[in-house]
Amino acid sequence: MAKKVLIIDDDFDLVEAMRITLEAAGYDVVDAQDGEKGLEKIKTESPDLIILDVMMTSMDEGFHVAYKIREDEAIKDTPIVMLTAVGNQTGFQFDPGKDADFLPVDAFLEKPVNPKKLVDVVHQNIKV
């Protein structure tokens, strides 16, 4: 059975671009438009990996979602790949290299998303 990836991102086109790439690589893809719906879908769909955007309805919604996932016994082991924007335009200082320690995620993926890199990162981190 194909592994399932849940994409939590409010950018429909980016979700579609990632869906096409991941489906071509043999994954099942489900999506959610914000953190709240994302948390529901994690429970109903039991994904094998979550791709999570940082900025959705609020500037740091992705971080809160990541913490909630890690606090929930039932889903806390699901791998998370966090989508980050280049640079610090929002004034929200964040450096995957430096801040990875206190962020409960497994990998970072930078926007724009390179298809090959996306498949590599998902492949490396997905639950076996």
Partner: peptide, 21 residues
Amino acid sequence: FRYASHEMKAPIATIQSTLMV
């Protein structure tokens, strides 16, 4: 300036992701 550049960057990043796909 910061918000405008971010707001402009987000769709361009998506366009680039789409083009790459």
